[in-house]
Amino acid sequence: MVNRVTERTLMTAFTNSVGRLRRQQAEAQAVLSSQKRLLEPSDDPIGAAQSTRLRGESRELGAYRDSVGVGTAALGAQDAILGEIHDMLIRAREIASSLSGGLSTPEARRTAAEEVAEIERGMVALGNTTVAGRYIFGGLSTSGPAFTSPDDPGFTPGTAYTGSTTPFSVRTARDESVRITTSGGAVFGSSLQAIDDLRQTLAAGNDPVGSMDPLQAASEDIRQERASVGGRLNRLQSRDREIGNAITTAKTLLSHVEDADLTETITQLAQVQNALQATLTAGNSLLHTTILDYLRL
């Protein structure tokens, strides 16, 4: 502290104090209006880098969640359809069973062949189901139907599948992908073949007893595939919850890095305002008091 204080010293100290307090007031105001303590990198350089990383991670998790959404929709649809296919195979077995043996007439079998043909058409239609324009049993392609129609000339179950055979996976974590397609050819192949054989057997008026085992085997194929779809669906659903938790964690951390402590800031603002008021009052009194008020020259 200097021992000789001039008017200018007082004036400068006053101006500097008011300037500093006004700056603090403006800073507190900016924090309060934005509710952020991190407004530019220099506010907290390491925090700025953390903020960028956490925001990147948050967005990345959001992208994984989108992928999980796509996967859940596709696998959910597949699960429902495989259930229906399974029901169709049971119905076909019932028909085959009821028309087996000597009690059934060739006419009754030929009539039943029509119903089986409908089942076959229905099965192909289910195989060509789309979600958002994508064939869910056609490798999620939009290029064209996965199966040709049984009404097309030259239709054979073995060549009916024309969809994509490439497995389609979605990224659900940095090191995890989940396959969300099932090749229609592989899954439906045995079912279509068994149904088509049954239709032809019945159409020829023959005993369909030979179709029972293939229908049973096809049912087993569908059941196994459905178990696989269900397993992957469960994984996606559980991954969705994990992502939700991770996003919450990232947002909490981000808030910790970026957000202002409003109570603290409001207290600081009140302190600054008090100090400013005191400085202005003191300045008013000090700067207006000179020896001239007391001297008569």
Binding site: N3, R4, T6, T9, T12, T290, I291, L292, L295
Partner: peptide
């Protein structure tokens, strides 16, 4: 430094008016 310089070189009106008298 400005305060220190002012302590040495600054004009104090209190002083000047006293000197004036």
């Amino acid at each position: 430094l400005a305060a220190q310089r002012e302590a040495v070189s600054g004009v104090s009106l209190d002083e000047e008016f006293t000197d004036l008298i």
